[in-house]
Amino acid sequence: MFVKPETESVLFAGPFALATLSAPDRPAFPALVTPDARILDLRTVLDDDQLTVRGILEVWETALSRLRALAGDDGLGREPLADFRVHAPVEARQVFQSGANYRQHVIDLHVAHRAPGEDRSEEERRAEAAEIMDRRAAEDLPYVFIGLPSAVTGPYDDVVLPAWAAKPDWELELAAVIGRPAYQVSVEEALDHVAGYTIANDLTDRATVFRRDMPQIGTDWLRSKNAPGFTPLGPWIVPAESIADTGDLRVTLKLNGDTMQDESTKDMIFDVARVVAYASQSARLLPGDLVLTGSPAGNGMHWGRLLRDGDVMEGSVTGLGVQRTRCVAEGTP
């Protein structure tokens, strides 16, 4: 486990956030975190020893007012966050991932991912990418696929790079957390079903994105995106009411201290509401589910520099805190 520095300040918007924490003598529990790095064990405060963050999200409409009151009650005995391990904030049943949702990122990937047999120039492929995006935006067709909950890991845990992953890459994203079941909801209704937001790093092995043995099949997201730990999540779920505008948040990833991604969500082709609404047309979104909204430009393929043993990624999104993970090659002691 890569432990976050105890001196790191807890920065998120609003008066509180939700987390899942543990200690050597305390199994994982749901916690209310305040910006001064203090926590309340919600199982104790709410007198429910089986409570989880997902359980809170399942009754979000009634739980939210209680959480507000707890955050404002200075008389409650709070504990220092530094005494606890921070896990992924929620155990999702489903993970919906939006691909090709930042304009500049799509252009870069379209050029970098040369499919088998592709012999067109970079200029031609850039022009094609722009045309595809314009058409998708006009037809209101986001690109959403399914990830595995087993790929999710904590915001400060080591990320194991599998021996077979020849080109592991980063993709920092804003993730919406569902708080009310959503099925075939409209764009106008979609955000009413979002409880809050968190940070996800949707790692991808670029070498296995396409099936070289059967190119007509296209992308292989199972192989390229779902190794254990390939989705660092968190550290917190910040209530949606604390995020004023998801259309203008800064998504920043640093690799060993160097800024690689630094873009506003303004560059999204489809905003959060459109992605959530689109996913709900085919699937029933459940409380605690994650909807990843795509990653901006600045991935390793763009820089010609992929992840390797010992790399440290630090990802932040405005108002949602910071996650920090270290890469460890498979088999490293």
Rank of each mutant, 00 (worst) to 15 (best):
L67K: 07
L18H: 05
L67Y: 04
G229P: 11
Q261V: 07
V322S: 10
P5H: 14
D311K: 00
V187I: 14
G247K: 07
I269F: 05
L161P: 03
C327M: 14
G77Y: 14
E188V: 07
I178G: 01
D262H: 14
G179I: 03
V251D: 02
R212E: 14
R103Y: 15
F16A: 03
K254E: 14
G315K: 05
G304K: 05
A277H: 10
T332Q: 07
T34V: 14
P162Q: 10
V238S: 01
P215N: 03
V272R: 02
F84G: 00
V322Q: 04
Q216Y: 04
S150P: 00
T332I: 04
P181H: 07
A82W: 02
L42I: 00
R38I: 12
T20Q: 09
D48L: 01
T325N: 15
D309R: 00
A37S: 13
C327L: 13
W164C: 15
G55E: 11
I269P: 09
F145N: 04
T332Y: 13
E173K: 10
M133W: 07
R212H: 06
R305H: 13
T34N: 08
F12R: 01
H113C: 11
G55F: 04
A88R: 06
R125H: 11
D220Y: 05
T259G: 10
D74I: 07
F16D: 07
V33F: 01
E139S: 08
L290F: 14
E188A: 15
V95M: 08
D213K: 02
E173C: 07
K4Q: 12
S22Y: 13
T62N: 09
V106W: 06
I39F: 04
T34D: 10
A297Y: 06
H110A: 13
R120C: 15
N256T: 08
R68L: 05
V106H: 11
V53K: 08
S121I: 09
R54M: 13
T62D: 15
V90K: 02
G247V: 03
E118N: 07
R212A: 15
S316V: 03
L174V: 08
S316R: 13
L191N: 04
L42P: 02
T198S: 02
E139H: 08
R211P: 02
P149H: 12
P235T: 12
G319D: 11
G247E: 06
T332N: 11
P5I: 07
L222I: 14
L174Y: 08
T20Y: 09
R68C: 09
D262W: 13
L76C: 04
A329D: 02
W236I: 00
E61I: 12
A23G: 01
S264A: 10
I199D: 07
A277F: 01
I269K: 05
G117V: 12
L32G: 00
D220K: 06
G218E: 00
V322H: 04
A28L: 03
A127V: 06
D271Y: 08
V95R: 06
G257A: 03
T7Q: 14
D311E: 08
A71S: 10
R54G: 15
G77K: 13
Q281I: 05
A200N: 08
I217D: 04
L51N: 05
S224W: 05
T62R: 15
V275T: 13
R180P: 08
D49Q: 06
L249M: 11
I146C: 03
A13M: 09
V53Q: 09
V33Q: 05
S280F: 02
G196T: 02
